[in-house]
Design a binder for these strands. Structure first.
Length: 888
RNA sequence: GGGCGCAUAGCUCAGUUGGUGAGAGCGCUACGUUGACAUCGUAGAGGUCAGAGGUUCGAAUCCUCUUGCGCCCACCA
């Protein structure tokens, strides 16, 4: 119904102020997991709330092509047929990828619909849509022309399984138990002798990755390290390969770590690479793309890196060159897609210069144009931004946006680039490199026509960072007709978006980069509020993941309890950005509550029908203390839900409405209303029900809409349309009678006490007779007699002066239960306990009020509050003591 | 190495700028089927708010330190 009526649609022409959220696009390969359920419920609550609040609420949906992840999935599928992607070739394989996306790409979208996500589905975008790809190319070209994109040979994170470069963020560092190997390199003295003592025939280096020594081109010591001054005049021999290694001095070497001597492997370690650059060392790449050692590795060529490590160590040991190995916590980068250990690798890649982009992005957060919720993430963000490194954006895979750069074969041949070992040559190397959206006809440098496009594709995040504006069709080409013009208007209307809701794990990947892209390409922030929610974990606190088998499938929960129960439970648990620990029984909260709502509504509608009540309007007539009370409570609930949603305290918002609906409305007011179900009462009952449903709707959309429609069927003329499009409830303003508020509070307290007393006297389930001395407050009793009797489970109430005995003393009335002399021991024990507790509190309060410094320093209203409290409590204490004394 | 977070009832967690007799859900105990709901109702037990100092008239809340967990970042050979 919602979809058919276009309830999720948003347009720039409505005249309402916009409220926009762009969805964190799930991977096309994704299937809905609890993280999605949490993330999207949080967004849907905001969207539904603001829609009801009169905003033009747009929730922009879509999916991400997820380069490596998707390619892996299809590669696996292919493997089942016994084929590799190379067997198909690039074109056929890409076709296959599109087929896959055609077939399965909307799976997660459909699952989001099951969750109740009210996205404007007609706008669903995909990061590889034609117009979106246009944005990616545009951005590449703009940055390239600005000199912010460059190509060069650097050490990058290489995944030998995916066979592609990764960005620093995509290489997650994890510690594991490993070894630090101490390896002896022979030293040959040069020139003089005599100083070269026996123990100086070797120097010892320490390494965690011994196989990389095959690519060593130097050893390094700290220039201030006196122990190794003699080495300067010596020559170090690389074991196994017997290569001569120069000894260099570099401040980067920590004399206190290991032996103070470092092997230098410029092609396989970022720190060594820098040293190599400063000292003009050669770089020797010893590995193929799949981390199998190449011809440079001598006898180990053709072996996998870890096999080579083992065999090399064995050989060193044999030759007496393995001094020792000590256990060591090794921190190794892992591919975030397949968990393979990253190999730092020297290769020619494309990079984005980040510093110029990060500066404005730091400023908008510092100046709170963009705010984080909870705000501690601000610090994390700024810390990363201020230490930002250049971003490696080229990927050696086939699924993604092809880098819009062509190489002129003729120019390149003259530059001998074909070897692939080209060093960074600065501007000169740009000759024959053409960045363009379309394939150029000829090389602008030499006029050659043999142009070949860069085989690489761009990092997935290089498209994701444009999401808040590329989804609106940016960039807009001038010559295009009106539909495009609309898009431009829409971008203007809906951008910047309002709230971004995401998990902390993609803060750097995505959030930070979106802020940079927004500022660079739209000259404006992409969103003003960033809500960071926690990670979904199992009951032991372990992150849920399919490979660990500890997932709770949201679709199963939906099947079992309903999407509403799932959503509400998650919202109750989603406290201010802390991690969410889940187990099956945690969803009972939501299920039970939904059930309660359903039963209450069903009962009330049935009751109205049964009583033959015709409601022609919903104006309220308060008949008594209870009516005013529930309307006041409702006002409180409206306000609490509003302020809590607006400050992203979802759990507080959910709790407010839960507490109000169940424990005020159902437990008390509905029970009271049952007693005298007059048409006036029915009006209030229905009004509060309708408003409650509205307050609940952002959390519990399906059930509230269903009940709303049932109410509509029955009371059609009173309400219109669908709850999803109804305006948010207004607080009732009225002439509230303060006396009635006090009456109600005292009556509720009295009823609770009667229940307690009956329980203490062992007559919990008996209908009893009550004797009341109420004096001037008798009217209060008379007016509310019916429901008091019902709720306190009393057969008969008799008003009289002078009770035989007193079991309850209130501020304005005293009570006795007429039934015979039962055992009073429990009752007395309860009284004693109460007296003791209250005495402590009263004493503490009295002490405060005697404290001069409190009276002077505390704000007057705090003192006044304390006085009031003391007055009430000491009155209560006096009454309790009187009761106690009478029974002792 | 740097940074952040968490420690509150048996369990899972709330507690917004310091002013509460420290709360909820689940579990537990007793009673209950009173004309929506046992996926329920009524009542109850259960807490030196991790520990030690400090600031304050007043601290679960702010500061310092300690202990125990968890997370993030870093060119820790």
């Amino acid at each position: 119904m919602w979809e058919a009526r276009g309830d999720f649609r948003a347009s720039a022409d409505s005249g309402k102020p916009p409220y926009t959220i762009v969805i964190p696009p799930p991977n096309v390969t994704g299937i809905l997991h609890m993280g999605h359920a949490l993330n999207n419920t949080l967004q849907d609550v905001l969207i539904r709330y603001h829609r009801m609040k009169g905003r033009e609420a747009l929730w922009m949906p879509g999916t991400d092509h997820a380069g490596i992840a998707t390619q892996n999935v299809v590669e696996k599928q292919l493997a089942k047929e016994g084929k590799r992607k190379e067997d198909l070739g690039r074109e056929k394989f890409t076709e296959r990828l599109w087929q896959w996306r055609q077939q399965y790409g909307s799976t997660i979208i459909n699952q989001l619909k099951k969750l109740g996500a009210s996205c404007d589905w007609e706008r669903t975008r995909f990061t590889m849509d034609e117009s979106y790809s246009e944005a990616v190319n545009e951005v590449f070209l703009r940055l390239y022309r600005k000199g912010l994109i460059y190509r060069g040979n650097y050490i990058i994170n290489w995944c030998p399984r995916c066979r592609t470069a990764l960005s620093d963020e995509e290489a997650a560092h994890k510690e594991l138990d490993g070894w630090l190997y101490h390896i002896k390199y022979p030293v040959r003295a040069k020139g003089q002798d005599g100083r070269n003592k026996e123990q100086e025939k070797y120097i010892t280096v320490a390494t965690t990755r011994p196989e990389t020594m095959l690519g060593d081109t130097a050893v390094a010591v700290n220039p201030g390290d006196a122990r190794y001054r003699w080495l300067k005049d010596a020559e170090v021999i690389l074991p196994v390969l017997n290569r001569k290694l120069p000894v260099i001095e570099d401040d980067a070497v920590d004399p206190d770590f290991g032996t103070g001597v470092v092997k230098v492997t410029p092609a396989h370690d970022p720190a060594d690479f820098l040293m190599g650059k400063t000292h003009g060392l050669d770089s020797i790449n010893i590995m193929h793309e799949d981390a199998v050692l190449n011809e440079n590795a001598g006898p180990f060529a053709g072996k996998d890196r870890f096999t080579a490590r083992k065999e090399l160590l064995a050989r060193l040991k044999e030759e007496g060159l393995l001094a020792k190995k000590e256990s060591y916590q090794v921190s190794a980068g892992r591919c975030y897609r397949c968990d393979t250990i990253i190999e730092p690798r020297l290769s020619l890649q494309w990079f984005v210069r980040m510093k110029p982009l990060s500066e404005p992005a730091v400023e908008v957060v510092t100046r709170e144009k963009v705010r984080f919720y909870p705000d501690r993430w601000k610090k994390v963000y700024l810390n990363w931004m201020e230490n930002i490194q250049d971003w490696c954006i080229s990927r050696q895979i086939w699924w993604g946006h092809r880098i819009p750069v062509w190489y002129c074969q003729e120019c390149i041949n003259t530059q001998s680039e074909a070897t692939g070992k080209r060093q960074d040559k600065g501007d000169e190397s740009q000759r024959g490199v053409i960045a363009a959206k379309e394939k150029p006809e000829k090389c602008p440098d030499c006029g050659g026509t043999k142009l070949i496009q860069d085989p690489d594709v761009l990092d997935t995040w290089f498209s994701s960072w444009l999401w808040p504006f590329a989804t609106f069709g940016w960039p807009f080409s001038r010559e295009q007709e009106s539909p495009i013009h609309d898009q431009q208007k829409e971008l203007q209307f809906f951008y910047p978006t309002n709230t971004l809701v995401t998990g902390s794990e993609i803060l750097f990947f995505w959030v930070a980069r979106m802020i940079m892209a927004g500022l660079e390409f739209q000259q404006n922030i992409p969103f003003s509020d960033v809500v960071i929610h926690g990670t979904v974990r199992d009951e032991k606190g372990i992150k849920m993941s399919k490979s660990l088998g500890n997932v709770i499938d949201p679709l199963e929960i939906i099947e079992k309890f309903g999407a509403d129960a799932l959503r509400f439970s998650l919202m109750m648990l989603a406290a201010s950005g802390s991690d969410v620990f889940l187990s099956d029984e945690k969803f009972l909260v939501g299920r039970n509550f939904c059930n309660k709502i359903w039963n209450a509504a069903r009962f009330l509608l049935g009751k109205i029908e049964e009583e033959g009540i015709e409601l022609c309007d919903l104006s309220c007539h308060c008949d008594g203390a209870a009516d005013e009370w529930i309307l006041r409570e409702m006002n409180g609930a409206i306000e609490a839900v509003e302020t809590n949603i607006e400050s992203y305290r979802y759990n507080e918002a959910a709790k407010s409405i839960y507490e109000f609906f169940w424990h005020q409305y159902c437990d008390w007011y509905v029970e009271i209303a049952k007693v005298h179900f007059s048409p006036a009462r029915a009006k209030i009952v229905i009004l509060v029900l309708l408003n409650s449903l509205k307050l609940l709707h952002p959390f519990i959309p399906f059930l509230t809409e269903k009940i709303y429609q049932l109410i509509r069927e029955q009371l059609g003329s009173l309400i219109r349309r669908r709850i999803i499009r109804e305006p948010w409830p207004q607080k009732l303003s009225g002439e509230w009678d303060r006396g009635r508020k006090r009456d109600m509070e005292q009556l509720l307290d009295t009823i609770r006490e009667i229940r307690n007393i009956k329980s203490d006297l062992g007559m919990g389930n008996k209908k009893v007779s009550l004797e009341v001395t109420a004096g001037e407050a008798r009217d209060v009793w008379e007016e509310n007699l019916d429901w008091i009797k019902k709720l306190a489970f009393i057969e008969h109430i008799e008003f009289r002066d002078g009770l035989k005995r007193t079991l309850y003393k209130g501020p304005r009335w005293i009570l006795n239960i007429a039934e015979g002399d039962t055992d009073f021991s429990t009752y007395l024990a309860t009284l004693k306990k109460k007296v003791a507790n209250l005495e402590k509190v009263v004493q503490k309060s009295a002490k405060m009020l005697r404290n001069e410094r409190f009276l002077h320093n505390a704000p007057p209203e705090a003192v006044e509050k304390e006085r009031l409290k003391h007055g009430q409590l000491s009155g209560q204490l006096t009454r309790l003591k009187e009761l106690k004394n009478a029974f002792e």
